[in-house]
Computed example of a mutant assay.
Amino acid sequence: MIKHIAAAAALLAASSAFAAQPGTLYAGVDVGTTKMDDVSGRSTSAGAFVGYNFHENLAIEAGYRRMGEFDLYAYGLYSEVEFKAASLSLVGTLPLGGGFSLLGRVGYNRLEAEAKVRGYGSGKAHDSGTVAGIGVAYAISPKISTRVELQRPGSDVTNLSVGVSYQF
């Protein structure tokens, strides 16, 4: 029995070896793909984020992402629409061992759309709401980690991204 307890303690110690240290900052970048409901095709996204670990399993994170550009046809008009998002989220992690962890996010998101309509000019609109996400992270070293995350920045928008971060 003691051997099992010792093995479990060693496993927990190993899984937390690369855990985020409270009071540290991190920053990173990601690339991915964005899908909008009722719009065919996907668009490439790119983003950057910065966060603060206030607990080994909780961080606050600010991010900016160019969600992509879509060609839309509505009301007899053809337009190119570019989407961008800025967010502020609470990010939680659950260590799984071996450097892997699950991550979840919930926060505030501001989406902006800029449309260019051929022959008519351009216009902008924005909407605010909740952002939610789930993913998997892998700590390559105590300072560098990667993540794969699925986010829902709007009720009709889904983004899948792969990123890397550096903990200061």
Rank of each mutant, 00 (worst) to 15 (best):
A46S: 11
G98W: 02
D37P: 09
T44L: 11
A137P: 05
D127C: 03
A14W: 14
H55W: 09
A19W: 05
D38M: 14
L90Y: 01
T158N: 09
A46Q: 11
G23F: 06
N57M: 07
F49G: 01
G119F: 05
G99L: 00
D127E: 11
G104L: 06
E80N: 07
L111V: 07
A113H: 02
R147Y: 13
V148S: 09
G97L: 00
V91T: 11
T146H: 08
Y120C: 10
I144G: 13
R105N: 10
H4E: 10
L12P: 12
F54Y: 05
T130A: 02
I5D: 14
F100A: 06
V91H: 05
D156S: 08
R110N: 13
P153D: 07
S40V: 11
G63I: 04
G51H: 08
P142Y: 01
A74Y: 09
V162M: 08
E56I: 02
V31K: 06
G98A: 04
V131M: 00
L72Q: 06
A74H: 10
G154M: 00
V136C: 04
L77C: 10
G135F: 05
G133M: 00
T33D: 15
R66N: 15
G47N: 07
D30I: 07
S165V: 06
E114V: 01
Y166P: 07
E112I: 06
A7P: 14
G98F: 00
G163E: 08
E149G: 06
T33F: 13
S145K: 06
G154Q: 02
F100P: 13
R118E: 15
A137T: 01
E149N: 05
F54P: 07
F54G: 01
G63R: 12
